[in-house]
Design a protein around this nucleic acid. Structure first.
Length: 611
RNA sequence: GGGGUCGUAGCUCAGUUGGUUAGAGCGCCUGCCUGUCACGCAGGAGGUCGCGGGUUCGAGCCCCGUCGACCCCGCCA
């Protein structure tokens, strides 16, 4: 070892000891007679001291060292005459006797500090320098801790980690596949897995009844701050279980991680049906760190599927499928024509100025949200009301509305109207915005919940067919199986999502384990028997050899790390992420390949695509 | 596929109505300084204003195109 200690561990206990440290020069301070160097490694920073008295030559050499030079320094640990209590090693310093420059460094393009002056692009181009920064290092360490603790929990629960292949078969369902040409099989392609879904099901058939894998997955879709083309899942599957068993097992995992990674004890996770999540939050991944639930002033009753039939144990009570109307008959066309009139009550915002209200309206009219307008009702402190629809609704009406919202004087009611789906979605955005404005979305507070009973299928207007909302291996709820033939849209899935702070952390389902039902499902999705057999025959064949009932879940590992780290972006939790366009600007990929490589792969590029 | 923000010194940014020699902070270089720790002080270097075209007596600023970065919608079973 070149060093005896790290830069983070020396203290007053080590006074007088001769030590050798290795690290990078964070900064040096030349005082004329003395020079100080902050030496940094993964573990911390230790100050090196050089004095012109006695060691003028050495001190002179030290003055010439630049930022990020790699140094090996040997000297005696001494107590500082003026201490820096801001850092753990601030009571000592190394009186250097000799040092070697292990490597020089160019001037880095940005400062290696928590508050770096580097912009996104520079940081990604020189990611190896960015990773030297404390803030990023902490994220990468958090990620490591997450994977260690995940494995600890899963192993203790009797799960075994099994690796599944990366070169698999392309299927048209779901996201676009990344595709890999096969040299040995001209004209044919592998696909990279979007998830190890079918393999883990085959492991269940094989009798490996508790499987997990921390595994890379690939999806060729457009990126976001929380979406990368390659990302990591905690992929899990169990046999001989019900939904309840899975929820309990993985609520256990989540609680274990909360405790061992974040040091937080969390209560049992609330559960909410998809239907209620949409009704009360306009989202299937609600942020329940704050209330501000939707209140409907007019609704046509139940949506086509899902009435929250499991009601009773849900804390999210409320009229399910009620037909209500507190708005019609006053000639306000916007409300009269609307399928849904729904709003939220922002506590203490009754004093909002005209400017603030206009701002909110503009926010809602942005093309990304696309609301046509925003109705407000201010609940004045004297018990009167002021609304943007005073012309149509008198005090009596507004009072009735306020009562429905349980609004207090000083509150602000914000109302949207229109088509049910769009209006809920838009109001969800507004709810999040108001949550932000009111400081109700503290990243250090965690509100996990399960969302259950998703619809099994989604109708696509363009292609005029059903798509699996989760994936085509998801089992319908047993009582809804007959609906596949009569009313597929109403069928609910035996599926569930884990949501933390409005972020979808994971999702899973009880799977289909019988060939007949799998065939029926694929048929509902528009597959012919031949297509079903050619694409998923391997799975259905396996089901004929004693497939056990099974189910599982997969967690977005990067997102979970980001949520635990208090960030909305997953990039800083991935050592080498890709940019918006799926490029790695450090290694400059993707890139063109040689004609020889193309020839070997039997690939001819379309004209105009040659680079 | 669409919407938005942005591109000026190594880095982060300012730059008014189109008008003289394009600025600041940080960083960098030189000098001074024996207890700093975001050291301080003095001085200095550093610019194809992303790229191409256009309008104009004159463009960092206006127009057209193009490239790139970031955020969002669509998409992501």
């Amino acid at each position: 070892m070149l060093r005896t200690h790290t830069c983070g561990e020396l203290s007053l206990k080590n006074i007088g000891k001769k030590v050798t440290l290795c690290g990078w020069i964070q900064r040096s301070r030349d005082m004329g007679g003395m020079t100080f160097i902050d030496l940094r490694d993964r573990y911390g920073i230790t100050q090196l001291a050089f004095n012109m008295d006695g060691r003028a030559v050495l001190c002179g050499k030290a003055r010439a060292l630049g930022r990020e030079y790699v140094l090996k320094a040997t000297g005696i640990v001494i107590e500082r005459s003026s201490k820096n209590l801001k850092i753990p090693t601030g009571e000592i310093e190394i009186l250097v006797e000799e040092f070697d420059v292990l490597n020089e460094s160019k001037i880095p393009p940005f400062t290696i500090e928590d508050n770096t002056d580097g912009g996104e692009e520079q940081r990604m181009k020189y990611r190896y320098l960015d990773l030297r920064r404390n803030v990023i290092k902490k994220n990468i360490e958090l990620r490591h801790k997450m994977s260690v603790e995940t494995r600890n929990y899963m192993n203790a629960q009797g799960f075994i980690e099994v690796e599944t292949p990366c070169l698999i078969k392309s299927t048209p369902e779901g996201a676009r596949d990344f595709v890999v040409p096969s040299r040995m099989n001209a004209g044919e392609f592998y696909a990279l897995p979007q998830s190890p879904q079918t393999f883990k099901q085959l492991l269940m058939v094989a009798g490996y009844d508790r499987y997990y894998q921390i595994v890379r997955c690939f999806r060729d879709e457009d990126l976001r701050s929380d979406r990368q083309p390659e990302f990591t899942q905690i992929d899990c599957e169990m046999s001989f279980v019900t939904k309840e068993d899975i929820l309990n097992t993985f609520e256990g995992l989540a609680k274990y991680l909360f405790k061992n990674v974040r040091g937080i004890e969390v209560n049992d996770f609330p559960r909410i049906s998809y239907a209620d999540a949409m009704k009360y939050y306009g989202s299937d991944k609600p942020d329940i760190r704050f209330e501000m639930k939707f209140v409907e002033l007019k609704s046509s009753g139940s949506s086509p599927h899902l009435g929250g039939l499991e009601g009773g144990n849900s804390p999210f009570e409320g009229g399910k499928g009620d037909v209500i109307d507190l708005t019609s008959g006053k000639n306000f066309k916007v409300f009269d024509d609307a399928e849904l009139v729904v709003g939220i009550c922002a506590s203490g915002c009754g004093e909002y100025s005209r400017k603030q209200l206009d701002e909110l309206t503009e926010f809602m009219k942005r093309p990304q949200i696309g609301a046509t307008g925003l109705v407000y009702v201010k609940c004045n402190n004297d018990g009167t009301f002021k609304s943007s629809v005073d012309k149509f609704y008198n005090e009596e009406y507004l009072k009735k509305w306020a009562a429905t919202f349980q609004a207090k004087p000083g509150d602000l009611i914000l109302i949207l109207a229109g088509n049910t789906e769009k209006t809920r979605k838009a109001l969800c955005e507004l709810r999040i915005e108001m949550g932000n404005r009111l400081g109700l979305r503290n990243p250090d507070i965690f509100a996990p919940l399960w969302v259950t009973d998703f619809p099994l299928l989604e109708w696509d207007e363009e292609t005029h067919r059903f798509y699996a909302k989760h994936h085509p291996f998801t089992s319908p709820k047993p009582e809804d199986i007959p609906l596949l033939e009569t009313n597929p849209a109403a069928a609910r899935a035996n599926a569930y999502d884990l949501v933390i702070n409005g972020v979808e952390i994971g999702g899973g389902s009880i799977r289909i384990h019988k060939k007949d039902l799998q065939k029926k499902m694929l048929k509902t999705l528009g597959f012919t028997d031949e297509e079903a057999q050619s694409q998923f025959g391997f799975l259905m064949n396996a089901f004929e050899y004693g497939a056990p009932p099974h189910g599982g879940i997969a967690f977005g590992f990067d997102r979970w790390c980001a949520v635990f780290g208090g960030s909305e972006s997953i990039r800083d939790y991935i050592a080498f992420p890709k940019n918006n366009a799926g490029r790695d600007i450090m290694i400059d990929s993707p890139s063109a390949i040689s004609q020889q490589q193309l020839d070997e792969l039997n690939i001819r590029l379309a004209p105009g695509n040659k680079k």
